[in-house]
Design a protein around this nucleic acid. Structure first.
Ligand SMILES: [Mn+2]
Ligand SMILES: [Mn+2]
Ligand SMILES: [Zn+2]
Ligand SMILES: [Zn+2]
Lengths: 137, 137
DNA sequence: GCACGACTTGGACTGATTCCAACTTTGTTG
DNA sequence: CAACAAAGTTGGAATCAGTCCAAGTCGTGC
């Protein structure tokens, strides 16, 4: 998994810098949905001199490579999801921003030509908005 | 439709100011997904002295009333959708931001208790990301 | 070892939205 | 009607996330 990520980076002609390695390490996990700032925080704790700009650059690169998903769950910070292999939904608490994965056996409905308005579709996203238990009080 | 919106505003104890009326008018339509700035622009053309702050205030109120939907389609500006009666998906061009409605007969899969992680769900959103015909070139 | 392109950096900048304190409007009460 | 309170509006400052940029560093091929 991780080695293939690094391989892919190399295959694209990207250099394997300590900064990129650290960002990839911080993002490793199963049900995490970190903001860029959280990634920066984790990266800094391993490599104190890493900069915000590099974290943003690397997140963009990893997204373009398809190694992570960039999620717009609420109107706030984007979140980055390393789980690209198993398609899943997301559950978001509109009050506190908590995010859950939902492993649900519903294939995303594929659209017919008519519905696509001539667009080519790359990816479909299902987000459920609600209130988590602690926020309900 | 429109009168019921104004009625609802009154029922909640909201005053029916010219500013609120203008914002509601600008938002009236069927397949529109305006940004706050576009709403402001339309509102100003009818009521030049209206302020940005009031537009944002009114958009929040209408959203809380359930009269419009606040959509986070891309990481940019939120979009406001007055079509709350017919559930539908959205199709977004990731290059130019164009938005289409998709009237598709797929009910949003409802989640079982286990999948909900204890959350109460208010609304589910399906967004298809891709590239529109003109952006494909 | 040098040169060059790739990469990183801090800080300035931008765009979207929220916040705020002053002001205006409207509704209520005597 | 006058006076006061409550609700609404305003412009601009502030915040927040993200992008941009010019300068400096690194590292690979020659
Ligand atoms: Mn996820
Ligand atoms: Mn719509
Ligand atoms: Zn919550
Ligand atoms: Zn497009």
């Amino acid at each position: 998994m991780n080695s293939s990520l690094l391989d892919r980076l190399r295959d694209r002609g990207y250099r394997l810098t300590s900064q990129r390695r650290v960002v990839a390490e911080v993002l490793d996990g199963d049900h995490i949905h970190m903001t860029a700032d959280e990634v920066l925080e984790g990266a800094v704790s391993r490599l104190p001199e890493i900069s915000r700009a590099t974290v943003y650059n690397t997140l963009r690169e990893l997204t373009e490579l398809g190694e992570i998903l960039e999620l717009n769950l609420d109107g706030r910070s984007k979140r980055y999801d390393p789980n690209v292999t198993r398609a899943h939904h997301h559950l978001v608490c509109d009050r506190c921003g908590l995010v859950f994965d939902v492993q649900f056996e519903v294939e995303v409905p594929s659209l017919g030509l008519a519905e696509k308005h001539g667009m080519s579709i790359r990816r479909s996203e299902i987000v459920h908005h609600g209130t988590c238990r602690t926020c309900t009080g």
